[in-house]
Design a protein around this nucleic acid. Structure first.
Lengths: 329, 329
DNA sequence: CTGTTAGCGCGTTCAC
DNA sequence: GTGAACGCGCTAACAG
């Protein structure tokens, strides 16, 4: 059975399609009785407007593109959840695209968004991304773009992120306050700007102190486990460990097991930047600065929706810094 | 600057819009030179077909709806990744929708899919879902549906899942083979059919053995941590623990910390059903039956695409059982 | 080989 | 108050 159109309803009601259209959208020129009659018919045949036709007519797609640097189990699901809720609440639908940390896929994803007539793009860039040239097409089409979390240095698009240097600094200051004298910092990919910003905060916190520090860089959980084991088994004086992400934190959990196996005593205070779920379940638990992907996603989506709906008068670049809180375990 | 249409190109090239359309789609009736000329112009004005118009015309949206029971960090991201890759490879785009374990949201999500003219739906049902009545609309519109992972008893739609009872049984048999005599099973929400299927496998493995067993049900990681601590601290004879998911497994990691804190010796073999990432990093590591969300997503998507593209001659219900493997750590 | 025409389903302007 | 007609952008059927 073909899906009923506005035309079919018109035939059934004995009126013109345009009358049906107006009745269904509660146009004031249509009499109350006729409206009721038409709506009843629409209901009875289970009428649904054809979205393609509506889109074509209105030049709107009610679609938002969410571009993720990769599909990881850490942080990303929270972001999707936050964005998804905010977007659906506003009657939009979400196109989810993962760039798999490749600039080519990212470019392709932007193209898909543009080709799909999305009304706005939320993007967190891959670690291969150095500039935003590939957003030119979106720009030409005047599709609003909001950057979140991972960005490059720019001042053209709104962006929403955490102050990486500050929260890293806070973390270290916490360790210092707790009396740590030998601090290990576990960081991610050395080439990422996010890594460097967090590293900067780490170093800043140590300026003018007598704290000793070591730093390691790990590409993933496994490397974090291995490298931190190497370090912790050699340098037994380490009494504080900072991890810049959940992913690396999980590595430390495995490292601890190795240390126990080798009967290497360890006793350090751990702190991580985390989405907030896993730290409670590490062995031992890890204090953390909560960097909520859900909040980030929600706020980024809301900001984008403002651009779309309110023609944001004040169109100048805004950098929104997300609030965080320290949770002590 | 308005986006150029096929009409604009026609004007520029001095030909009819329809000629442009044919040239761009390499219709054989158009001369090679004209094609080149038109393509060059299209390129130069950065022409992009208007997807809404194409959709309207072709009655196709190139959209697939992926409905998730919830947006969790376990398993789900892998599923999305698998589906996403398969779907993009085939030139489709992915609408991601989370039901948040609510039957109402799930119904709403199905509605969104139908309203958006998706060409197919991949759905894993919420834990409130008892039947598939709410798929009626998709059915009326003849939108293909494939169920994956969490389903209800049905034989109308294709489904793709793991044999829950079997892998649970395998897990326990592994523990038995390793010499365990006292086994603890940690299961999820008691009302879920997936829980009951895995529980059934668990029990079956114990039939006709002298193995003692205990079973606990936990709603989430935190409960898993608490309840398993209660059990393990009381029953010191437990020498094997089975966890039916990553989420619960993480709880055990926290439980182990508690046991250490209280100086309670524990020595059990752990095994879990897992997506395959976290078990390596637990303290201690956990052997697991790999139930890959990525594979599941990929296969489910491919099956759905078959329905969409090949008019699947053999339309009868198919239940596909996913392969798994046991990884010993 | 290329142009003309019509229509996909809807919304809006204009006329009655 | 309601109907007729047109156009959104594209494609397929029909002409020539």
């Amino acid at each position: 059975m073909r899906r009923p159109t506005i035309k079919d309803i018109g035939t059934l009601a004995g009126v013109n399609p345009s009358t049906v259209s107006r009745a269904l959208s509660d146009h004031k020129d249509i009499s109350v009785e006729l409206k009721q009659k038409i709506k009843a018919i629409a209901e009875s045949v289970n009428y649904k407007p054809n979205s393609a036709a509506v889109n074509l007519r209105n030049k709107k797609s009610k679609l938002i593109g969410l571009i993720l640097p990769q599909m990881s189990m850490h942080f990303i699901p929270s972001v999707i959840d936050g964005v998804s809720n905010a977007v659906h609440e506003a009657g939009y639908k979400l196109l989810v695209l993962s760039s798999d940390e490749s600039i080519d896929k990212e470019t392709e994803n932007i193209k898909i968004c543009c080709d799909s007539n999305v009304e706005g793009i939320l993007i967190s860039v891959s670690n291969q991304t150095l500039d935003l040239e590939h957003l030119k097409e979106a720009n030409d089409l005047e599709v609003p773009v909001v950057l979140y979390d991972k960005t490059v240095n720019q001042s053209r698009y709104d962006e929403l992120m955490v102050n990486d240097a500050t929260i890293a600094k806070q973390s270290i200051e916490y360790l210092i306050k707790k009396g740590c004298k030998n601090i290990l910092g576990i960081f991610g990919n050395k080439n990422l700007s996010i890594t460097n910003r967090r590293l900067e905060g780490f170093k800043n916190a140590l300026v003018n102190t007598k704290i000793k520090s070591e730093v390691i860089f790990a590409q993933n959980t496994k490397e974090a486990a291995e490298l931190s084991f190497n370090t912790l088994s050699k340098n037994l004086k380490i009494d504080g460990v900072f991890m810049m992400s959940d992913e690396l934190m999980v590595g430390l959990n495995a490292c601890n097991f190795q240390l126990q196996q080798k009967k290497i005593a360890f006793n350090y205070k751990p702190i991580a930047i985390s989405d907030g779920v896993l730290p409670y379940f590490m062995n031992p638990p890890v204090s953390f600065i909560k960097h909520s992907g859900y909040n980030l996603g929600t706020l980024a989506a809301k900001r984008l929706l403002q651009h779309i709906n309110e023609n944001v008068l004040d169109k100048k670049f805004k950098q929104n810094i997300l609030e965080t809180e320290l949770i002590e375990l």
